[in-house]
């Protein structure tokens, strides 16, 4: 005899935890670090060429690197952050990527 019990709907809810979602969605930062030999003008030119930044934005970021030791010069998707980081390293700047902490 067929059961009269209603069929149980499959569980379609995701089992992914909130922290995992956050980790995937948090942007990646491209960080440029200060060094004592690179001319400031070179840093500005590299930022303009690689990111297409205007002169005032590139200069402001260069000054942040110079005064604070590092600056986040771009944030976004991991693959693009990696690509930008490689371009900066090829241009001779000290650059790394890190996932945004917030």
């Amino acid at each position: 005899m067929p059961s009269l019990k209603p069929l149980r709907a499959p569980d379609l809810t995701t089992t992914t935890t909130t922290s995992t979602i956050d980790e995937v969605e948090r942007p990646w930062n491209v960080v440029v670090w200060n060094d004592p030999v690179t001319p400031m003008q070179v840093v500005v030119v590299v930022f303009k060429k690689i990111f297409g930044y205007a002169d005032n934005k590139a200069t402001a970021l260069m000054l942040t690197v110079h005064h604070e030791g590092r600056a986040i010069v771009w944030s976004g998707a991991a693959d693009k952050a990696q690509s930008y980081c490689v371009k900066l390293q090829v241009a001779g700047l000290m650059a790394t990527i890190e996932q945004d902490a917030s």
């Binding site: 060094d35 030999v37 690179t38 070179v42 030119v45 590299v46 090829v90 001779g92 700047l93």
Partner: peptide, 17 residues
């Protein structure tokens, strides 16, 4: 420019500057 900059920074790093 990029090759000279790579050379400059490498020089600084290997000489602990």
């Amino acid at each position: 420019l990029t090759t000279l900059q790579v050379a400059l920074r490498a020089t600084a790093v290997v000489n602990n500057i």
